[in-house]
Design a protein around this nucleic acid. Sequence first.
RNA 1: GCCGAGAUAGCUCAAUCGGUAGAGUAUUGCACUGAAAAUGCAGUGGUUCCCAGUUCAAGUCUGGGUCUCGGCA
Length: 333
Amino acid sequence: MPWTDELPRHLTGSVLVIVGPTGVGKSNLALALAQHLPVDVVNADSRQAYRFMDIGTAKPTAAQRSEVPHHLFDIREPNQVLTVAEYQQLARSTINVVFAKGRVPLLVGGTPLYVRSIVHNLRIPKVAPDPQLRAQLEGDLENRGVEFLYRRLVDLDPETAEITDPRNGRRIVRALEVFLKTGKSKRHLEGERNPDWPLLLLGLTCSRQRLHQLVDSRLDNMMSAGLLVETKSLLEKGYCPALPALQALGYRSLIQHLQGKLSLCQAVQQAKHHTHRYIRHQYTWFRRLPEVAWFDVTAISIGALIAQITTSWPAGQTLETLDAGVATYDRMR
RNA sequence: GCCGAGAUAGCUCAAUCGGUAGAGUAUUGCACUGAAAAUGCAGUGGUUCCCAGUUCAAGUCUGGGUCUCGGCA
């Protein structure tokens, strides 16, 4: 449907970005916003990019996606790994296409590194994963230990070693991979640049306690909606449980249940706990994002928020201010 | 009612001969640029069920009580 109204000037030419922890309501805000503005949703969620993983990733439904243009959903089979670098390229070109249509790109998603790849316009070393080399390095990791591998990195690329966690095998393997393939220091191949377009960032948040309630009951609903069947069908399609896609929250625990390692009850509880942990992880990134207008979803209605967005870019608070408010509230009760 | 086992971090449990109460998980925070819903690191958290006793010293030994689980009636 072509957009006939004139786009508010304060939104013209900018990429809109909605961030926030899983389950806080980003997708809903995006859909509601699409009723008032000519936006195309661009996915920034690493798991919603995979096909056949609909229930557990809380992917927007087919009906929703036919009403509002959605991009970068269902672009990979579960066994076709999507990397950050590939995501960044796809998101960049998608954003340009949306602009070319005269519409507003709305980046929505909870994968902090994906968001950062666009917001900070990350320069990512052009070294595709080399399965053979990785297998070899992982063998060393297993047999000779992480200290051995880290010492090798110190010898070959001391500058990257300096900023790499000596205990984090996976990061060390990647650093070695970059050096062995290019002969150059990973540290010098990466960096941040100014973004390609003006960005307007909006964050949704709420108290941790409330978030935990939200995602817990959302998982119960996913179970009622057939998450176990969906998980089983992924295995029946022959996808290996070790695939990154199948490490997704919920799926990972339910696979352990299907393998007889956990009771269903244990698996569901573990999935909830892992989701809480993921929320913590997301916030460690969000706290470092610049210039996000944060809103407590329990303190403002979607309608009020949209009214603000369409008139002028809303002045949200900082996470620190909101956290302090929650702390005060907790003390008072 | 009798017999047995038990009670330790929010939860599940460990603690040698009586000698500074630990682990997993939860929870909180941090790091993390081609696996990122991944991966790594750290912090908080204790009336060791209660009372009395023995001892320089008790989660640990003794006595009493309370509660839980199992078995027998």
